[in-house]
Design a protein around this nucleic acid. Structure first.
Lengths: 403, 403
DNA sequence: GCTTATTATTTAGTGTCTAAATTTAAGCTC
DNA sequence: GAGCTTAAATTTAGACACTAAATAATAAGC
């Protein structure tokens, strides 16, 4: 709906887009298929395909149709050239960096994870670690850096629509992730920064529980709580990227802070242990230890330990209150819980949905993510792919570079 | 970004749109202006304008330029034909219906308000009242019904993106507002239902405090609380239209229900009176009366009455908590408070912003609507205009109808 | 009345699409 | 293998919309 002037070439541009979109969605396609999908004439469809092939975004497959099948002249078959380039999906956390390398079909062809040297690592050190991890991932995948068409990066901070970390956020000092800086200082990759919970939402909608869902919330509930919100298929950012940050839930009765599931399990588990209550958790933790990791609480609960079960119940009820607020403000069709302990969070679901049903008139479906650690980087891949797809016709595929 | 096929005519279509958009935005424009605004050639611009004139959406003004100014052949001047049709903006409440008639520039040319016969009025009676009110408004404006190109309707219920009132909502039983039913049974107007708070948001962004703001929340806070949310310039609906309904804020500490400002003022004012506390409110209400309307509380506060001021302070703090939640989830740039008592709500602002500043890291600007009763119907006009503008080239202007 | 400036209109040329006719490359039948 | 059938590709003619450049119109200034 933009006030843009148009030239005849723009027509072709639009048709290139249309055909490309079909090609991306289907494995291998004949001219006739494209005629039906786009409504264009055969002459046009073929011309557009030849154009796409010349630009490097599509390729023609050796017809080789099933013998004894169709009569008539064999159709040419066209398909999306998923090797026309690659994208990187990064999850840059406080302690670790995860890198995925994917081709343009979204298939992951390489991955690598590294830990930063320490909590007090400088921005420069962190940059070097990120660069090294990217290089390792690319090498493992056999993908040259020149093939990278865009990079999606998830960070645990609000990021506005222009890809800037919220001013004054502590993460801004720890990393140097701006365009053309830090890890990508000497590469000309388009770098897209995005909040990690938002990327989790993209990931769940792409390959998780939210596929095909246009109104979706994802709550990252490991150590801290944050949420990514998709409305009508679009990510919400708010004016400064702070939408869904859940930073001020302290005012909610029964939700004393924005602590996530893992942290609550640890806190309450430790508290119970200190109080000397009889529980299986003590045996799991072992003698002499006072720190209770979240895992032990979940294990004890799975074994039927009453105290652990009660802790889970409290966590579930607290989560239900958070979800009830999200429902009030967004009315999503589905809420997915992700984050470090997502797998164990399944145990919370019955109590959570029951409590949510009490709090809200028409509660959304609630699911637990099964994407594990890959959640955020997968969303980063999706973000990078979105960018490539949106700008495909203005880009030059890796193979054609310099030609 | 839709996968749509394109024909050469689509080019013209796009340019018609582009030129029309410029025409709508500026008073009277020459070909040269359009060349600069659109980047098209003079030949094209003129052809497009002639096309628009032929279709009825634009008109040519008698050049009559300031004498003694420009040399050269006088430029033709084109302008948007705001009389090519009209729109209706309705606010259908429980007790009243408000109707605005506007031309395509958005100028209000007629208005009418009516009360329904009673709370127990049937859907049929209500329909008749609405029809009569519309007819009166059109007649007063001298606009024939055939000139109406679309109708925006605000209702106090969740409405999904397809214009359907949430299933099971009590308002659905009181009205019969579906497409081609009730008040518009024998007219062929496109009717666009929308939640009233959402329309308030559209109105504030169009002609209120939110002009030019892309991330905006409007809170209708008269009797009940509800909010309309605009993110990146788009209204949020959620999966069932329930986004921003604020129906479950009961779980928030200090916000015991979704009562609005007027209701709280009334409740707390009445309670104070019953408790026998000394206050100016008693004098304003008059002897023998126990019902305290919100107005008296605001008047007493304006006169410096301590108890009234304290009530306002409590209301302000409660509102601040609601706004802090909105901020947490949406991060809007601006929040506008509207609804029945908006004008008096200005008195709440200092305490409200102070409290909000304590609750939230980077609080949004807060403003009070000055659009009064016109707020929702103005938003309905905006909604109707949006629809007309989006579909303009597929519509037939009123004047050309039947030709 | 001539020049100059500005705009409108006309003309020729280009890119893109459709529709219809033609060509190509198979499978099938005899 | 010749000939028929079929499905797809290609070619051709025509339509539409745009640009660029040339031409025409209209007013102000001298």
């Amino acid at each position: 709906m933009d006030t843009s002037a148009t030239t005849p070439q723009l027509l072709r541009h639009a048709n290139l887009r249309a055909v490309l979109e079909v090609l991306r969605a289907s494995p291998a396609v004949t001219g006739t298929d494209l005629i039906q999908a786009t409504g264009l004439t055969r002459a046009t469809v073929i011309a557009v395909c030849d154009d796409l092939i010349a630009r490097g975004w599509a390729r023609e497959t050796d017809a080789s149709r099933a013998p004894g099948g169709q009569k008539g002249r064999p159709a040419r078959k066209f398909e999306f050239n998923e090797h026309a380039g690659h994208v990187l999906g990064l999850d840059v956390g406080m302690a670790t960096v995860r890198v995925l390398v994917a081709d343009l079909s979204g298939a992951v062809v390489g991955r690598e994870t590294a830990r930063f040297s320490g909590h007090d690592a400088s921005a420069g050190e962190r940059s070097e670690t990120i660069t090294a991890t990217i290089d390792a991932a690319l090498e493992a995948a056999g993908v040259p850096g020149s093939s990278v068409l865009s990079v999606g990066v998830g960070v645990a901070a609000p990021v506005d629509r222009k890809g800037r970390i919220a001013r004054g956020h502590h993460l801004g000092a720890l990393f140097d992730l701006g365009h053309g800086k830090g890890p990508w200082a000497d590469r000309d990759w388009p770098v897209l920064l995005e909040n990690d919970a938002n990327l989790a939402a993209l990931a769940e909608r792409w390959r998780g529980a939210g596929s095909g869902v246009d109104n979706l919330a994802v709550v990252l509930a490991g150590e801290r709580l944050s949420s990514g919100l998709i409305e009508s298929g679009r990510l919400l950012h708010g004016s400064g990227g702070g939408a869904g940050e859940l930073g001020t839930l302290e005012i909610v009765e029964g939700v004393g802070s924005h602590d996530g599931i893992a942290k609550l399990a640890r806190l309450w588990g430790t508290a119970a242990l200190k109080a000397g209550e009889p529980t299986l958790i003590r045996d799991l933790v072992g003698p002499g230890t006072t720190r209770v990791s979240a895992r032990f609480v979940f294990e004890a609960a799975a074994a039927g330990d009453a105290l652990a079960l009660e802790i889970l119940d409290r966590i579930a009820r607290r989560m239900a209150r958070v979800l009830s607020l999200i429902t009030t403000f967004f009315d999503p069709e589905l809420v997915v819980i992700g984050g470090a302990v997502a797998a164990s969070a399944t145990a919370l679901l019955p109590a959570l949905t029951e409590e949510l049903g009490k709090l809200v008139d028409s509660p959304p479906r609630v699911a637990v993510s099964d994407m594990g650690e890959a959640l955020v980087p997968t969303g980063a891949v999706r973000l990078a792919l979105d960018h490539v797809e949106a700008n495909m016709l203005d880009l030059v595929p890796a193979a054609r570079r310099g030609a």
